[in-house]
Nucleic acid binder design. Structure first.
Lengths: 264, 264
DNA sequence: TCCCGGATAAAGTCATACGATAGAAACAGG
DNA sequence: CCTGTTTCTATCGTATGACTTTATCCGGGA
């Protein structure tokens, strides 16, 4: 059971990684940044702790100080670390982290699922995405609509939980944000994508029922956007998010049960 | 008139700068990053354009390649630039920018006011802050409440538009976000602070009427949070945001009029 | 006891060198 | 003349060592 979970996580990680576009994993400093970030987010390097001294660290992971420092700069831009002369480079307190940053969200997939965090993300999504759907219904161009429709077809025509299906799901929600024509609002699309990915990350691949229900939810949202009915789109998007939240919470509960029965 | 506006902006910039904690302006790479970021956000370096070649640039602003590269890494973490090996470092398309990042928001104050952008920020705020107020009313601890109350007193007891008053205003809204106990949601507090600062940035300092009205709006929100009435808090926060939006739009319109009459 | 100043350690900055490669330019073949 | 291939060069990525700046710590003096 654990093995299956681990395997699933592995494939999921690759997918998530592919979406984090800002950090080039081919480059050395990118690998270092990734490694440090994961250590910070999992809590292996607790807040306030000193990162290993530059000279020691470069020795430990055998990269030059240059690469290490560029990685630190990259992370400091996201608020994960703060470097001060003489006192050292410290892991920043969690309140300073930019939890809405796409990379930071993606790095969380490397850590164990944190139920509170996932609930918080869903809560935020519930505040934002129905409003986004309303705007999308009101402001969409024909091009926006075809993009949303294409994504929906991608969900419907591919096998459940296959990679193209997941991508289409993400594309559906991204297209809705794009149709709002509000760039700052669009910056919250990664939060929505993260909740979707958490949901699928936790899911057993044979859960046909939820997939069908979710597809219907999506179709109803799409229909409201076709009709340019903002209030209806918002209401239906609320329903979609709540359904997704409930099913994800059940998965989290099941997972917790499995863990306790295993450790007991 | 222009001179006054410029002077006001100058003082405002200092204030904003003081709140951008992630970029240390004492450090050289921080100054370079700031300079590049402003050039990008104002549009002086258009999207897709190549940044000056590393060797040329280091010569132009007389810093070493190291400092320049670290600045670029800092900015690439926010999506402002993307450096690809051999082809050069390019300004990223605006869709890639993380517009919710506190630093990115702050850098916008160096550019001319962009009405669309300010409206978008207010729109997002209108989606988020009433919900935040609802959660704050439901979840606040006594400590949260005293923090909010202290901020309100700071607004009421200091002269209108003075620096302590502005800080208290920002602290009031930050404290509400803190009381939601939802870290990802709290990451949106900078957006709210940015809209407030834009509003004050544009305002004539002698507008007593708006200040008094705003104070009453704040008091009503505080009252709802004291009563732990979530729906009431949300409704009153909506009112506060809408009042602030309307007054800001008037200021923008007035500013546009002044500009056209001046250029005409 | 308190304040001041030097020692010190760590990050910050600089200059230089070399490697890898994307993209352009030159070139060969049709 | 066009197209595909090769070579070449410019530019970023990485490594290294030296030097500078800054903040903390600690000890001596008032």
């Amino acid at each position: 059971m654990l093995a299956i979970t681990e395997e699933k996580r592995g494939s999921m990680q690759l997918h998530v990684k592919a979406r984090a576009t800002r950090l080039n994993p081919d480059r050395l400093f990118g690998q270092v940044a990734h490694r440090l970030a994961v250590a910070i987010i999992t809590g292996a390097s607790p807040a306030g702790s000193l990162l290993p001294n530059e000279d020691d660290l470069k020795d430990e992971i055998s990269v030059s100080r240059t690469a290490y420092r560029e990685a630190v700069k990259f992370l400091s831009g996201k608020g994960l670390v703060e470097a001060k002369p003489k006192s050292g480079t410290r892991v920043a307190p969690r309140e300073a982290w930019n939890l809405l940053d796409p990379d930071v969200l993606a790095w969380h997939f490397k850590a164990d699922p944190n139920e509170k965090f996932i609930r918080d993300l869903f809560e935020l999504r519930l505040f934002v995405e129905p409003s986004a759907a309303r705007l999308a219904a009101q402001r969409r161009s024909d091009a926006d609509l075809s993009r949303i429709e294409a994504a929906f077809r991608g969900m419907a025509e591919n096998p459940p939980y296959a990679e193209p299906t997941v991508n289409a799901d993400l594309a559906f929600h991204e297209a809705i944000f794009a149709a709002t024509r509000n760039p700052p609002l669009q910056c919250l699309a990664p939060v929505v994508c993260a909740t979707i990915q958490w949901s699928l990350f936790l899911k057993a691949p044979d859960d046909q029922f939820f997939f069908t229900a979710s597809l219907i939810d999506h179709e109803r949202v799409l229909d409201a956007i076709v009709q340019r009915d903002g209030d209806l789109a918002a209401a239906r998007m609320s329903g979609l998010v709540i359904d997704s939240l409930n099913s994800t919470l059940r998965l989290l509960a099941g997972r917790a049960d499995a863990n306790t029965s295993k450790t007991a």
